[in-house]
Amino acid sequence: MRQILRRPTLLAGLIITVILVAIAFLSLVWTPLSPTKMQIVHKLKPPMAQGLLGTDQFGRDLASMLMVGAWNSLSTSFLAVAIGATIGTLVGVTVAAIRGLTETVVMRACDIIFSIPPILSAMLFGAFIGAGRFTAIIAIAVFMVPVFARVTLSAARQIWTRDYVMAAISMGRNRAKITYVHVLPNISNQILVQVTIQLGLAILTEAGLSFLGLGMPPPTPTWGRMLSDSQTFMGQAPWLALLPGSAIALAVLGLNMLGDGLRDLLDPRDNV
């Protein structure tokens, strides 16, 4: 605990992330108004004039929309990273245990997957199975697999050269068991740091996807679509563009700071 307090980056990142997660969960049980309730008489009201943060072109309460947007953005990103991290880590540790030709082939395959930005694969999937949360999650998760496979492989390879692993090999332990007992616990910190950082990237990607109409369909509010809708009312209602963008930036900033802070805390060697 004292460790955390002494690190301003970690602390700031933790506070921002916890607050956003709390808001996201709160939106499931309570928002000031229904985020889909239209009150045309109150349309395009600036912050404080109508509700805490004003209203959009249909008179919907912006604060409520942002809260539900937080849930949609965070849950989609979290699911995508969880899937990508799980598969990527499994691929990474398996390849590290087998090495040889498998490593070359799998890592080449990872390069190939990594060469297709998630925005484009989402378009590809979206054209056939339709846009929506599922498409967004799959597109982001697919892109995350090579990211985690690479990080896990390079971390696991180092563990495989350690003395205690050598000892385990000479004792005749099989490679799956060594991976489970020695490798995974020793690389879990690096994976955790990577999860935090990739969550930030996933939020940016999800926002981009819903900006292009490839995310969750209306009327469910998402930060990205709120930005997309704001373009028409830029002159009259600049807060419609300012607020959702700030929410995205704040979420990503919080997660990146948390990731940086965790890295410093868990990996003292990297303290530049």
Binding site: G208, A241, G245, A249, L250, V252
Partner: peptide, 9 residues
């Protein structure tokens, strides 16, 4: 942390 497309807006 800022999305490029938001900077554009």
């Amino acid at each position: 942390a800022v999305p490029g497309f938001w900077v554009g807006l």
